[in-house]
């Protein structure tokens, strides 16, 4: 059975498209691809573009405190649209919706280096000595999250790798279109990937 059959055809029954991963994994890039391809983005545009994300964040402030919300019924309004949710908040998404999840993976050295720069720019304390420890925590978190996703039938997951999307935007845009089973403009999606924005590169490229 295809996704439409599994998740229903009516707008009300449509899955929420969720873009997730650790912050600085390329979630904004994938949101930008979806936007360019023709998917309606569920955002309030409160968080403005800045040096860390020159093309914008595509975020929704309401998502940021999902943990504290007893009523998450407003997420029904995101059905058929794309919303960005960082991976530690995925378990907070209510099972009354179904979700097509695009999970972005990126080399953890790159993720941490990029996060450190962002933390410094925000005036937060950065301790490079804790990078290795953080990498271990992220690895464990990602493993746990993916195991949790497998056990939750209301999520259907497509994993993407940041460096692969940058290297082959057309191919990866096709994969996304196929997964979402939507009429998306692949060439516009691919055009939204800007290789120069891949600034924090690890010396040795791995997919961890």
């Amino acid at each position: 059975m295809n996704i439409r059959g599994l998740f229903g055809k009516d707008k009300q029954d449509q899955p929420v498209i969720v873009v997730s991963g650790l912050p600085r994994s390329g979630t904004s890039m994938v949101m930008r691809m979806l936007d360019a391809g023709g998917v309606q983005i569920f955002t309030d545009s409160v968080r403005r573009a800045d040096e860390d994300n020159p093309r914008g964040y595509f975020e929704l402030e309401r998502v940021k405190n999902l943990e504290k919300q007893p009523d998450k019924g407003w997420l029904k309004d995101a059905r058929g649209k794309a919303i960005k949710v960082v991976s530690p908040l995925l378990p907070e998404l209510p099972s009354e919706n179904t979700y097509l999840l695009l999970f972005i993976n990126r080399n953890l050295h790159e993720v941490i280096a990029s996060q450190n720069k962002m933390l410094a720019r925000r005036g937060e304390k950065v301790d490079p000595a804790s990078d290795e420890r953080m990498r271990g925590l992220f690895e464990k978190h990602l493993g746990k999250t993916k195991t949790w996703l497998k056990g939750n039938a209301h999520f259907k997951v497509l994993e993407l790798v940041y460096s692969q999307v940058v290297a082959d935007p057309v191919g990866e845009a096709r994969r996304i279109r196929q997964f979402l089973e939507r009429e998306l403009d692949v060439s516009k999606m691919a055009g939204a990937v800007e290789e120069p924005l891949y600034r924090n590169r690890a010396k040795v490229e791995t997919n961890s």
């Binding site: 912050p23 600085r24 968080r47 975020e59 402030e61 940021k64 405190n65 943990e67 960082v86 530690p88 908040l89 996060q115 962002m118 933390l119 925000r122 937060e124 304390k125 953080m134 925590l137 992220f138 464990k140 978190h141 746990k144």
Partner: peptide
């Protein structure tokens, strides 16, 4: 330990502005 690790990650994400 698991709960403490998740909490540490969330604290970092709060610093980055992704969780409030």
């Amino acid at each position: 330990e698991d709960a403490a690790s998740e909490e540490e990650i969330k604290e970092r994400l709060k610093g980055l502005g992704y969780i409030s």
